[in-house]
Design a protein around this nucleic acid. Sequence first.
DNA 1: GTTTCGGCTCATTTATATAGGAGCTACTCA
DNA 2: TGAGTAGCTCCTATATAAATGAGCCGAAAC
Lengths: 118, 118
Amino acid sequence: MRKLTSTNYYNQTFLEEKCTLNELINLLSKRWLTEVMFSIEEGNNRFSTLKEDLKHISDNILADRLKLLEQHKLIIRNDNFREVPSRVEYTLSETGAKLSELLDGLCHFSETEMEFPE
Amino acid sequence: MRKLTSTNYYNQTFLEEKCTLNELINLLSKRWLTEVMFSIEEGNNRFSTLKEDLKHISDNILADRLKLLEQHKLIIRNDNFREVPSRVEYTLSETGAKLSELLDGLCHFSETEMEFPE
DNA sequence: GTTTCGGCTCATTTATATAGGAGCTACTCA
DNA sequence: TGAGTAGCTCCTATATAAATGAGCCGAAAC
């Protein structure tokens, strides 16, 4: 899917190898990703309630972001298949909670110290 | 240049208005931007030395990132036009230094707590 | 007087991210 | 039997970001 021979790709991996901060920022910059995390933190733990909470997100993006968050172990996916009807439930992991705290700090900074032009 | 009627644009501004963290992350996610900032912090204060330090960056991207950083008052651009030859010099602003500290925190988190798959 | 250097700008091409919309599976409820 | 819901997947279209490469302006060194 992704072209592995482009300069674009080369530069991205170069930066990610230089410092994993770049990898983290790359992840965080996927649209809706932090909002999905925060929404889960606030207790919206199902696909449908998340979708409702984040009004404008589309299904495939929400599915993708949940997958990304799970792959990076920031959230945990519980498939309660023994319940009927079976339902999937998401919760924040410990790592996810720590990240959320750090982001709160960044958020505070951005609201009090940053100036966004125009 | 940017299309103002797309859902893409609408969603981005929706998120930015919801919380300026999204705006900050958007800025930080521009490739090379944090590296340019760090490089200036380390004393590379000229276009040409930055270009040399960040081997693979191209001119127009470097110019753009410097402009962005300046617009957001994270760096300061000094045009010493009375010197001969006139030269431009960049330094980190106070806000920039604070941001850099916060990013150090994130960096530490990302190196010690994050797991990046594959 | 022409070449060199610093610090850029601009137009075009290439690559990637986001959105839209159809559809699928397992289950339940009427 | 047929419709409805949750939690997705896949394909395509659209929008945006990054890279390439040429070029420009003023000063200065040869």
